[in-house]
Design a protein around this nucleic acid. Structure first.
Length: 271
DNA sequence: CCATATACCTGGCAGC
DNA sequence: TGCTGCCAGGTATATG
């Protein structure tokens, strides 16, 4: 479900409210993608310092250690008053002095992982290979162009891999490639420097705009306060197979790349 | 090392 | 109503 914008929107919606809280209790539901890695009750008494984001991971810094939270395909976080009984898909609760942080994740591809330090092996196995932050200073057009040159895979799959740049998932990969006028099947290595620069800008634009719109709320996404996002209302190609391109009216195509759906305009996007 | 396939899991929906 | 098959926003791991 959540790509970088949804994760960032989630973070923004509860980070300030939870900062400074003390952990009163924690509980697990059914197993998630990876084990927590500690006894949830051992978190009692620790203070929540801040909530950061790295790619699609949320990092909840505690006075000792940190929690890495990933929303997988169907996860969402809620932060609100305690007391609501856990539903069948609520698989992690962090009860704090400021409220209850709850992970709801029907498919359980998400995870909450405890690490003593961000540099520890458990954390680095998940974070260590991640590419640069697309909305940060380190996302440089020239470096991005060079990175693309080294990859033979289709550009869409290079974006999804997250080793060049993080946070671009299946929706925003299709959207960014449309904005850049690049066919998703184009080999990354064959993208010229000017077109790479255009894609670089398109990625920044589409992600920043999606954050501003509160993310995309396909199916069940909403932020930690339960509010929906509106980005999907302005999707140019995603999930629009057979519908007219908003620019040239040609029929939007759907193809499969690496077992994932890709959408593009055959006229606006050149190989 | 690189590129691609597989596995994890539940629910919604179209079609019969 | 209920069955079947397909689809879904991710990514570590296995395989070629």
């Amino acid at each position: 479900m959540p790509e970088l914008p949804e994760v960032e929107v989630t973070r923004l919606s509860f980070a300030l409210a939870i900062a400074g809280a003390h952990v009163v209790d924690a509980r697990l539901g059914l197993p998630l993608r990876w084990p927590l890695g500690c006894d949830p009750q051992s978190l009692r008494g620790r203070q929540v310092l801040q909530v950061r984001r790295r790619g699609k991971y949320l990092l909840i810094d505690l006075s000792t250690g940190l929690l890495l939270v990933h929303l997988g395909m169907s996860g969402s976080l809620r932060f609100g008053p305690p007391g609501l009984p856990a539903g069948k898909h609520d698989h992690f609760d962090l009860l704090t002095s400021h409220g209850l942080l709850r992970l709801h994740d029907p498919r359980r591809f998400g995870a909450v992982v405890y690490a003593e330090h961000e540099q520890d092996a458990v954390a680095q196995k998940l974070l260590g290979h991640l590419g640069v932050e697309p909305l940060g200073e380190g996302f440089d057009a020239a470096m991005f162009a060079e990175g693309l040159k080294k990859r033979q895979a289709p550009v869409k799959q290079v974006l999804l891999a997250g080793e060049l740049v993080v946070g671009v998932g299946n929706i925003y990969a299709s959207e960014a490639l449309f904005l850049a006028g690049i066919r998703p099947t184009t080999r990354a290595s064959r993208i010229s420097k000017p077109r790479a620069a255009k894609l670089h800008q398109a990625i920044r634009d589409v992600l920043a705009r999606a954050v501003a719109q509160g993310g995309s709320s396909l199916r069940d996404f909403s932020n930690a306060q339960g509010q929906n996002g509106y980005f999907q209302l302005e999707a140019k190609v995603y999930d629009r197979a057979g519908e007219p391109c908003r620019v040239c009216a040609a029929s939007i195509k759907r193809i499969v790349q690496g077992q994932r759906s890709t959408f593009f305009c055959p006229v606006c996007q050149k190989p």
